[in-house]
């Protein structure tokens, strides 16, 4: 009886020491899950998730927010998020989006130079000054849509990015048959 008590106590002590040591030794710094989540998000900063940017949404997911709120990321991102968080994949909350990448385009002859789109752009991809024509830096445009609404003259279109020979996806079946 006594031996058993002593033995168990000793065991508990040893394991306690081991656990304590492990906790010190392998402590995880910070909250890497947020960083991991953020890395998965498309960084469009569009706010369609209801959070002001990708980082806040990543933090929200880490705190239990739903994973299906990122329309630009699409199903693929949602699945990755589900995988990382260990939850069931859910269909996207927003209405089915077409996944073609789009960029904003300002019809320059209609632009009045109001700078509203510049203020709306989360990634500073629109250049221009008051009363002067604005234009979109296509390489930096994330296609977030945020500049379309503020435009008072509706001169911003979201244009699908056209395929070229460098970005072609090798879907041979998609090429129409021609005759010689």
């Amino acid at each position: 009886m006594l031996t058993a008590v002593v033995l168990l106590t000793l065991l508990a002590l040893v394991f306690g020491v081991i656990l304590g040591f492990a906790a010190e030794k392998f402590r995880v710094e910070g909250n890497p899950i947020v960083d991991q989540l953020e890395a998965l998000l498309p960084q469009t900063q569009c706010g369609q998730c209801g959070f002001p940017g990708c980082r806040p949404y990543a933090e929200a997911i880490a705190n239990g927010e739903k994973i299906n709120r990122c329309p630009p990321g699409g199903t693929a991102t949602m699945e990755k998020l589900a995988d990382l968080m260990g939850v069931e994949p859910e269909p996207l909350s927003a209405e089915a989006q077409d996944q073609t990448k789009k960029v904003a385009f300002i019809r320059e002859e209609e632009c009045i130079g109001c700078t509203k789109c510049i203020q709306a752009c989360p990634v500073d991809a629109i250049v221009g000054a008051g009363k002067l024509m604005h234009t979109v830096l296509t390489v930096n445009c994330t296609g977030c849509d945020l500049c379309v609404e503020p435009c008072p003259v509706d001169c911003i279109d979201m244009i699908p990015v056209a395929q070229n020979t460098r970005s072609w996806d090798w879907r041979l079946n998609a090429i129409p048959v021609k005759t010689l």
Binding site: L172, I175, V177, K178, T179, L180
Partner: peptide, 8 residues
């Protein structure tokens, strides 16, 4: 003559 497309 229809042009056949196939992958190499």
């Amino acid at each position: 003559m229809a042009l056949n497309i196939a992958s190499s």
